Amino acid sequence: MISRRTLLGSGAVVAAGAGVATAQSAGRTTITAVDVHPTDYPTVEAVRWMGQEIERETSGRISFRIYPSGQLGTETDTVNLARFQVLDIARVYLGAVNNMFPATQPLALPYVFRDEAHMRRICDGAVGQAILHTFERRGLVGLAFYDSGFRSIYNARHPIHTPADMRDLKIRVPRSDIFIEMLDAMGANATPIPFGEVFTGLQTHLIDAAENNWATFQSTRQYEVARYWSQTDHCCAPEALLMSKARYDALSSADRDLIRAKARESVPVMRALWDEKQATARRTVLEAGVHFNQADTEAFHRAVGPMKQRWMRDETIATTVRRIDAHD
């Protein structure tokens, strides 16, 4: 198995680039795909389905090798590894990369989407496709958007009803300027640490809280150390499926078309798995005794309003948000 150390070691980038030509000259190609989520998570399963479909349609000439559970590093790590041809496909949450890719920032602002159906229509439509196209400026091909659900607050101390209840809470956020400003505006002490360190951070009281979706809360077992879930639904930023542009360009035109087609087809596969996972995860953590409450979302809307307006002074961001608002 490829280790993160092997990939990051001296000569790894050169070897990976050479591997493209070798695999193609031998008539077979292996696509490496990575994810920080566990092997049965909807995003991992969707990419696995995509790989199986491509392997079937090419009679085994193209196969996928998948590394789940953050084996090859954080989401930021894997995006950079894909940019430099060390690996091929990375599934990343936009909140983790929107400092690197500013075109994604409107999708990560608070309370941009009315519901998940609205988010899906935006990502599948002209706005989403235009944002995916911008990844090519930095060595990546945007293949598709996956769901990440609405995010809410969970913590180890007490229920959160209004932003006043966030005071003095150290809350984990992705390494994103938007998320840091958003949670600070809510009254918390935003603390950016890697995704893989959240459970330990909650357990050791390095942090008091985090924010995410039901599926992640359950699959990472963070509900065992954070026993209060407060439904704020403050963000619904999607996830992106990205491919190394150099690796993509090295494929034949027919193979590029096939990868794009199967990536698109994997989206409804992921969404069906996602809807089921969210419902199951919610039921699991509530049955385990996690305390649930509905937060005062209007109060949170008001708290983040000035922060959101500051970001919308950027006309590019404002234009995208207006297009999102106008979409049914």
Rank of each mutant, 00 (worst) to 15 (best):
R283H: 14
L94P: 07
E265A: 12
N99I: 06
H205P: 05
G142K: 07
I178G: 04
G149Y: 04
W214I: 05
S244D: 03
S63Q: 14
D165L: 09
Q105L: 12
W49V: 03
I131N: 07
V47D: 05
G305Y: 15
N212P: 09
V79R: 02
R310W: 02
A126I: 06
A96L: 03
I131W: 01
L183M: 13
G128I: 09
R65C: 11
S266H: 03
D314L: 00
D40K: 04
I193G: 03
D328I: 13
L169P: 08
Y67C: 06
E53D: 11
P194T: 10
G149W: 03
T316P: 09
M243R: 02
R283I: 04
R137Q: 11
G142R: 05
T191C: 09
H118G: 00
L286Y: 10
D296N: 12
A303E: 06
L286N: 12
Q218R: 09
A15T: 10
E276T: 12
R221I: 02
G139L: 08
N213C: 13
G187C: 11
S219N: 14
A210D: 08
V36P: 03
M182Y: 04
T319E: 15
Y111D: 02
G201W: 05
P174V: 09
V285S: 10
R271K: 12
R322D: 14
E315K: 14
A15P: 08
A16H: 10
M243A: 07
P268E: 13
D328C: 11
P306F: 02
T32C: 09
S176N: 11
P38R: 00
E197C: 01
P102V: 01
R114S: 10
A254F: 01
R137E: 13
A318N: 00
R151W: 07
S25Q: 15
Q294R: 15
V285W: 03
L273S: 07
I153R: 07
V267H: 04
A272T: 14
Q105V: 10
T39M: 10
R5Y: 12
W49C: 02
T316Q: 15
T191H: 13
R302M: 10
V198T: 13
F135R: 05
V97P: 11
A318L: 00
D147V: 03
A188W: 09
Y111W: 01
